[in-house]
């Protein structure tokens, strides 16, 4: 379990969080939604220690899938993964699982958007971390590609069941990918719903979840 206590964070005079508490369950994929500027990315950056803050946040080893893949342009796909993992066998296995074996010696400039994001996902899973953070990782992908990414992500996640906190604006993504959905407003969690079931959740299985989330978001 990961506990955040009394988190306070401001940008200038604008307070984002004040005495904010949150507990993230181990092995749970938690989705964080909220309006732009509500502090979603800030929370991820606090957990990753990328921004100063006040409060009690445990020191964590984090994997982070950014909104854009942030691959090192002068390193091949293989060497990008080798930055976070020294085990060649694990890297090759991950390349195989993500369908990137044929791209191992390619440079990021030669990858499509989907391929680059797959490398970012592979990198995140290869790094041995306490929590995986994702900041709208699939927002730049088309619908069909998103669906295949959901399958890929959950397929790999099921092998190690890491704690995940991801941010999205997309309610479809939230109900498809997560065990728990949170909505952040004015530095507080105003919606907190847990959901069981196999991931990625099919449309039919997510109907109840969609209805409840939709009722809240549209009120």
């Amino acid at each position: 379990m990961i506990e955040i206590k009394n988190l306070s964070k401001s940008y200038g005079e604008k307070s984002i969080y004040k005495d904010f508490d949150l507990t993230l369950g181990e092995g749970v994929i938690t989705c964080l939604m909220g309006a732009s500027g509500s502090g979603k990315t800030t929370l991820l950056n606090v957990l990753a220690n990328l921004t100063p803050f006040k409060g009690e946040v445990p020191p964590l080893r984090c994997s982070y899938i950014f909104q854009s893949p942030t691959l090192v342009p002068n390193l091949t796909v293989y060497k990008n993964l080798a930055l976070v993992c020294a085990d060649g066998a694990r890297i090759n296995e991950m390349l195989s699982v993500t369908g990137l074996s044929g791209k191992a010696q390619s440079y990021p400039v030669h990858l499509s958007g989907g391929e680059a994001q797959r490398v970012a996902i592979a990198r995140a899973f290869l790094f041995e971390s306490d929590i995986m953070l994702m900041d709208e990782p699939f927002s730049s992908l088309d619908v069909k590609l998103k669906r295949s990414m959901y399958e890929l992500f959950t397929d790999i996640w099921k092998r190690d069941k890491r704690t995940v906190l991801f941010v999205t604006h997309d309610p479809d993504e939230a109900v498809t990918l997560s065990n728990r959905i949170l909505v952040l407003e004015n530095g507080k969690i105003t919606f907190d719903m847990e959901a069981s079931g196999d991931l990625p959740r099919s449309f039919e299985d997510s109907l109840d979840l969609r209805r409840k989330l939709g009722e809240f978001l549209l009120k």
Binding site: A48, Y64, F66, S68, L83, V84
Partner: peptide, 13 residues
């Protein structure tokens, strides 16, 4: 790229 710098920090390169 700021993203690359953040990645380096997060992944403790």
């Amino acid at each position: 790229d700021t993203g690359v710098r953040q990645m380096v920090k997060v992944y403790k390169v």
